[in-house]
Amino acid sequence: MEGNKRWITLASGITFEEDIVTLDHDLRRFQYRIVNNPIITSHLGTVDVIPDGDDRCVVIYSTDMEPEVLALPIGGAAGVGLEALKARFEGGA
C-alpha cells in the first residue's frame, strides 16, 4: 500500500492498481477502484457489513465494472471469497 493506493497481484500474475475510495468503520463500508488498467475501463468494488443481531452479520460484496464480460469471473471469485470468510467466522478461527 502507498497512501490510498494498493497493488494486488493475482495468482495468474496480473497486477491491479487500486485506489481505496471508502474505508468507513462507522458505516462498515469498504470501496475500491481498479485504475490505470488497459482493459478494465470502469470499476467500483464495494464491501458492506450489515449487522443482523448480536453475533451475526450479512456481508455484501458488489462490483460495478466495464467490460461487462468480466462480471462472471469477478462474481465467481467474490463468491469464493465470501464463502471463505463465512467459513472462517463460523469456524471461530
Binding site: 493475482l10 495468474s12 464480460v69 469471473p73 471469485a77 469464493v80
Partner: peptide, 8 residues
C-alpha cells in the same frame, strides 16, 4: 472455464 484471471 478458460477465462480465469484468479486461477481458481
Amino acid at each position: 472455464p478458460l477465462l480465469d484471471p484468479f486461477l481458481r
